[in-house]
Amino acid sequence: MTTALQPPLPSHPLLRLSLAPRGTMPRPIDGAWWPRSYDLLAELPRLLGGLPPEWGQITSVTFSGSKWSATPGRTLVCNQVVRLRRTVTASDPDTVVLLAPGQGRWDLLVVPPDTTEHAAQVFMAAAADDHS
């Protein structure tokens, strides 16, 4: 009998996400996300898998067409279909909008992947600040 050694599991980098506390007042930004690339299909599973359970199942993600790589109209993430909506308006090219039917809408500031760690921490702290 032979024993095959399993290769080490690939390292899964931590999700870089900072969320604002949930309050009674609506906020223009609900937090900040610092992806490692602009490849939405690669980044989205980590983001959706790391969201708070009370956000429910995200079924739609709206993102800037000028920033992210090409994507299909929908994809399977965390065993559910997620509709991907590319927008070409320049109103908020640095945000993604997450929708969960019956639960709500969340707008996340996207910190550019090539941002330095110090600058990213400043952006993420400001986006999650309860007083901003």
Rank of each mutant, 00 (worst) to 15 (best):
A4F: 11
A4C: 09
A4E: 07
L5T: 12
Q6T: 08
Q6C: 08
P7K: 15
P7I: 12
P8V: 13
L9Y: 04
S11K: 14
H12A: 13
L14W: 04
L15R: 06
L15N: 01
L15T: 01
R16L: 00
L17D: 03
L19T: 06
P21I: 02
R22P: 04
R22A: 06
T24C: 04
T24Y: 04
T24R: 15
P26H: 08
P26G: 08
I29W: 03
A32K: 12
P35S: 10
P35Y: 06
S37V: 05
Y38V: 15
D39L: 15
L40Y: 06
L40R: 03
A42L: 13
E43W: 07
P45F: 12
P45C: 14
P45W: 11
P45A: 13
R46G: 04
R46W: 00
L47D: 03
L48D: 01
G49H: 11
L51H: 01
P52I: 06
W55T: 02
G56P: 00
I58E: 01
T59R: 15
S60H: 04
V61D: 01
V61F: 09
V61A: 05
F63I: 13
F63R: 07
S69R: 15
A70T: 14
V77M: 11
C78E: 11
N79G: 02
N79S: 10
Q80P: 10
Q80S: 12
V82E: 04
R83A: 10
R85M: 06
T87S: 13
T87A: 10
A90K: 11
D92R: 15
P93V: 01
V96F: 02
V97M: 09
L99Y: 05
L99I: 08
A100F: 13
A100R: 13
P101S: 09
G102C: 07
R105A: 00
R105H: 05
R105N: 01
D107P: 06
D107M: 15
L109W: 08
L109K: 08
V110Q: 00
V111R: 04
V111P: 01
P112T: 02
P112V: 01
D114G: 10
T115C: 13
T115S: 14
H118P: 04
H118T: 13
A120I: 12
Q121F: 02
Q121L: 14
V122E: 06
F123E: 03
M124E: 00
M124I: 05
D129R: 15
D129S: 13
D130N: 12
